[in-house]
């Protein structure tokens, strides 16, 4: 894709909301969003293989998942009842926290942005789960966090006391770092046990220490990974009754199981949304 950069010139009209778009020609996904002929929606997207989802289907799934995640179906505002405050004086922090109407997504994004600013630690958090190699990166962020903590608290009236556990904190992942693959083989060489199969080999104290001192992942990095592409095919269910979706609606491609359900589907749901 050609790289297009906008040079800051005064003659350009700075209209809000415009952007350069690479014209790739015919795009079937666009057709799925805005079909010209409603009866031909399914035929237009038939070039996709069975497992591929159209953009339209993906948006529908995302919307569905967001619906399931809600506490109430409708958006409701329930104010907190007044009273029992006692006229206690609140500190600035408390006022700020109580009055911030921010939701969880905001805090997650803020955390990600903060870590990205500190050197892409959020993306490496996933890798560090798999390889001990990346252990040095979180250690760096820990150190930088500590630095900022020190800087902040020294701005306050009293210097922060240094705790012994913290000074050893960043250096703990290093043994695992230095050992690498050779470290894993070492205990086997020392204790050759003919009876014990490979899985029961002893774990060394350093390895345990490295595992336990690894920093936590970010919220998004800890999410369950997607199933492998070679796994069992996705199960499909009848849209109406929940039995296996053995047939597809000719018009919209929705899954149905029987003629009864097909009639219900055509009455109430087919091409209605």
């Amino acid at each position: 894709m050609p790289h297009i950069e906008e040079l800051p010139t005064s003659s350009k009209a700075a209209a809000p909301g415009w952007s350069y778009v690479v014209d790739t020609g015919y795009d079937p996904s666009k057709l799925a969003i805005n079909p010209s002929n409603r009866k031909r929606v399914r035929i237009a997207t038939s070039g996709l293989s069975g497992t591929d989802l159209t953009l339209r289907q993906q948006t529908a799934i995302q919307r569905h998942l967001a619906e399931l995640d809600k506490d109430n179906h409708k958006d409701v505002q329930i104010p907190v009842p007044k009273g029992s405050d006692g006229g206690k004086k609140q500190t600035t922090n408390v006022k700020r926290i109580l009055q911030s109407g921010k939701d969880f997504a905001y805090y997650v994004e803020e955390e990600e942005a903060l870590l990205a600013q500190k050197g892409g630690a959020s993306s490496s958090a996933v890798e560090s789960a798999d390889t001990p190699r990346a252990a040095s990166k979180p250690a760096k962020t820990q150190a930088s966090r500590r630095k900022s903590a020190l800087a902040n608290s020294s701005a306050a009236s009293t210097p922060a006391p240094s705790t012994p556990a913290d000074s050893t904190g960043p250096s703990i992942p290093l043994p695992a770092n230095a050992k690498g693959p050779a470290g894993g083989q070492q205990p086997v060489a020392i204790k050759p046990s003919p009876l014990a199969p490979a899985p029961t080999q002893r774990i060394t104290e350093e390895e345990i220490e490295a595992l336990l001192s690894a920093p936590p992942l970010t919220y998004n990095a800890a999410r369950s990974p997607a199933p492998p592409p070679f796994g069992p095919p996705q199960r499909v269910f009848c849209e109406i009754c929940g039995y296996w979706g053995r047939a597809k609606c000719m018009k919209c491609g929705a899954r149905i199981c029987s003629v009864t359900c097909k009639d219900t589907h055509e009455e109430s749901r087919c091409l209605k949304f």
């Binding site: 920093p215 936590p216 992942l217 800890a222 369950s224």
Partner: peptide, 11 residues
């Protein structure tokens, strides 16, 4: 103690 780097969450 939890092994932090291995915690996984199904949403």
């Amino acid at each position: 103690q939890p092994i932090h780097s291995s915690v996984r969450r199904l949403p």
